[in-house]
């Protein structure tokens, strides 16, 4: 008995310890998932609160109605949609925008814009990159190519989904590149803060590929 009791005690303790560690791991795994597993509509606080509504929103609703491809300019010919360089923001905002806006102050700081003696100066040496938080992320083993999808959808508007109300593209044969984004990204132009609207899981990809005769070979995306 003298021997067995401590062993049971030790066993019990270690079992509790192991369970505790496993539980901690579980909690950690749950909370540590950077992309929300449930309810992917979660939004992120970005370093600069960039209003898509203001820039890309329809003119009728107070937006500027800018084309998506004005900033995301490589979407038509490369795999990535491209986050614009601060340079591009500065090209407008060195002149446009309120002096007192908190968000624009941050942008000017990033772009190295300051005024001296009533003159606006852009100094690239004082500029620094902006680290945006990624909202739409695919796993490492997926090779998604924007250009191929944009090309297909612009020529086959029937496949476009989530068409925003303000776009009138029904019955057209060819549409603009910026009119097809909603299929995966939703109506970004009317989002205060960008969030993911589609699950962007493999099931969704494959369904769409099946509907439209896209390749369903694994190696089309995984290599």
């Amino acid at each position: 008995m003298k021997v067995i009791v401590p062993i049971i005690g030790l066993g019990g303790l270690s079992t509790i310890a192991i369970l505790a560690i496993l539980f901690a791991g579980l909690i950690n795994a749950w909370l540590g998932q950077p992309l929300p597993v449930l309810g992917f509509e979660q939004t992120f606080d970005q370093p600069i609160n960039f209003p898509h509504t203001k820039h890309a929103g329809p003119v009728t609703e107070g937006g500027l109605g800018m084309d998506c491809t004005y900033c995301h300019r490589t979407v038509e010919n490369s795999s990535s949609a491209h986050v614009p360089a601060v340079e591009l923001c500065a090209s407008c905002h060195r002149a446009i925008g309120s002096e007192n806006s908190e968000e624009l102050k941050k942008l000017r700081e990033s772009a190295g814009i300051y005024s001296e003696n009533n003159q606006v100066i852009v100094d690239p040496k004082k500029a620094s990159p902006i680290n945006w938080k990624r909202v739409h992320r695919l796993p490492d083993h997926v090779r998604f190519v924007h250009s191929a999808h944009i090309n297909y959808l612009t020529n086959n508007p029937g496949a476009i989904k989530n068409i925003p109300e303000h776009l009138n593209i029904y019955g057209k044969e060819n549409v603009l590149s910026s009119e097809v984004c909603s299929t995966c990204h939703g109506d970004v132009a009317n989002m205060e803060q960008v969030h993911q609207v589609e699950p962007l899981k493999m099931g969704q990809c494959v369904n769409c590929h099946r509907e439209n005769g896209g390749p369903t070979d694994c190696a089309a995306c995984h290599h």
């Binding site: 490492d140 083993h141 090779r143 250009s147 191929a148 995984h222 290599h223």
Partner: peptide
């Protein structure tokens, strides 16, 4: 263009499928 594989995965020559995809895409565009 190529996935960086992790531990526990089998891998082998793919006939440079990433180059085939790139080339085919370019031709189609």
């Amino acid at each position: 263009d190529v996935t960086v594989r992790s531990r526990g995965i089998m891998e082998k020559c793919s006939f440079c499928i990433q180059r085939i995809r790139r080339g085919a895409r370019k031709a189609k565009e």
